[in-house]
Design a protein around this nucleic acid. Structure first.
Lengths: 164, 164
DNA sequence: TATTGTTATACTCTATAACTATA
DNA sequence: TATAGTTATAGAGTATAACAATA
């Protein structure tokens, strides 16, 4: 980018978002790897399972927002299952489906990782911010995220429903 | 994360930042790939070169913030050079160094990609925001980014200076 | 015929360590 | 001895397409 359109404030906001997001993700990724041998994606998958009503979800539903091709999800599930953090079993209702559930070991990893995770975010993300800043950030970025979610994204996980 | 510490506002801000950053990067990445066959990292490398005073920089300096191991930079430089977007030549002063410069073709790719890039960001990032929002976002995220930059990151590009 | 999930395969990117050559 | 950059190699992750089983 360079000269056409866009105010200096906009450039500042755009670049800051991209870089802050990238830096924060790196740090989080490193913390999760060190303290729980998890990637961020794996952490989010486990979290989603832990938060699920009955701790179990179908593969397809599990993938949803997490930018995964179906095979990518299978790959991650293989890793998590190999480490005993999740279990897959055939769905009772639909024989084609696979139900995924977090195990006790999976919950333990989440519990083990949580304190460091919260401490990291508190220090490195919120360290330089006051309450008002946090409120403003939550407000603006929530709207941005919600908007970005609506933007039609290519392929991803969910299979193109019959493309004429 | 779950119960210990941290306010709901903080959770909202943290998750929104992570997700908004990830979604925006995906979209940008896709736009750059489609319109210029560039990854975001390559785009940033080219931009840095284009912005450099004399359009040329040493390999080591080029890598700086861009999360690259030395070999990773060489890999990207190989790709960019193969496509004629940059040129490497031995440095005049230090025979060990390599000077990298953007080519005319490289500038053309940047020019070709820029309009779509700006349009995308204007629409998808700033679409749901007013001027005040942008100002607040720039203010807060700039501080966050500057703080995150100061956090000691592991290895990266620059070689560990003699670790006793 | 459409959907769920897996597999086979290839490709991109990154990192480590060894290596060359200069300083 | 330290630095600049490359290379060889291996590993993580992702995607596409073909596939089997079920709806």
């Amino acid at each position: 980018m360079g000269q056409t359109e866009a105010t200096p404030e906009q450039f500042a906001a755009y670049f800051a978002l991209m870089e802050a997001g990238a830096l924060l993700q790196q740090m989080v990724e490193q913390q999760l790897r060190q303290e729980g041998d998890l990637s961020y994606v794996q952490f989010r998958l486990l979290t989603r399972l832990a938060d699920a009503a009955d701790s179990s979800v179908r593969m397809t539903d599990l993938a949803d927002g997490l930018v995964h091709s179906r095979s990518g999800l299978t790959y991650q599930a293989d890793l998590l299952e190999r480490n005993g953090l999740i279990v897959r079993s055939p769905s009772p209702d639909d024989e084609r489906s696979v139900t995924v559930a977090i195990t006790e070991a999976g919950r333990e990893v989440l519990a083990r990782v949580r304190p460091g995770h919260i401490a990291l975010v508190a220090k490195e993300l919120f360290g330089p911010l006051n309450e008002q800043d946090v409120a403003a950030m939550a407000d603006v970025l929530t709207r941005v995220r919600d908007h970005l979610r609506t933007v039609p994204r290519p392929p991803t996980t969910r299979r193109r429903t019959a493309k004429k």
